[in-house]
Design a protein around this nucleic acid. Structure first.
Lengths: 112, 112
DNA sequence: AGTACATTTCCATACTCTTGGAAACATGGA
DNA sequence: TCCATGTTTCCAAGAGTATGGAAATGTACT
């Protein structure tokens, strides 16, 4: 994963509304949610929600598919894992350094 | 960890220079690096490096300590782990969903 | 005290992002 | 075809961010 892409993904998440959208979709799982459902739940004007969904999609964090008149967005879990791994690459020169290592509850990420 | 803090941390990392600084310090481990060493290695003017180091510190991602005339910066590994965990909270409603779950090579993060 | 060096603060410029109303663009049903 | 509904694009205003030179601050050594 290129540095530029990582920066873009982090920038996409570094915004309160988009972070909320992304977390909502992470929680929703692969089934995803309709665009309208997202803007309703977060009380966002359609234009604003659409703007943020587009940003997240351009950053590679979301996928979208069309179902009739609806557009369904879902999180790209694989991409998310690559992103997380990037931040800890070569941590401490490759030696273990976490004070209390403990596997994550719901999901593990691949080594990048 | 508050949403606001997470956004601040992500925003701090969502910048090419700062991401490079952070990754350099993650690799350096708890020993950290002097401010001058960081600006030299990344070929940054001192003012620019200082600005970015301040941003990362304000976001809670770096710690700094003084050693004589030098200021030594190091990554806050615990904070980093909390941050990573935040993004995957309640992933898929709490069920496992990663296609190829595999523990990270160098470091594990705590469940938030 | 004076000098040398490390780091930060100040400041101005240029650039990028967020927001949301209005209009445009689908799609499905009558 | 016409209408209702879901979603996106367009646009302009306001807010925030990155950069780096110059000056200020801090520390150590003589």
């Amino acid at each position: 994963m290129e540095t530029k892409q990582v920066v873009e993904a982090l920038a996409a998440l570094a915004q309160e509304t988009r972070l909320a959208v992304f977390r909502m979709l992470v929680e929703a799982g692969p089934a995803g949610l309709r665009a309208g459902e997202i803007s309703t739940r977060l009380r966002l004007p359609a234009a604003t929600a659409s703007f943020h969904l587009a940003q997240l999609t351009r950053a590679g964090l979301l996928a979208s598919r069309t179902q009739g008149r609806f557009v369904i967005y879902s999180a790209d879990f694989e991409r998310m894992n690559v992103l997380l791994g990037f931040l800890t690459d070569n941590c401490c020169g490759g030696e273990s350094c976490a004070p209390v290592p403990q596997p994550v509850k719901t999901m593990k990420r691949k080594a990048s």
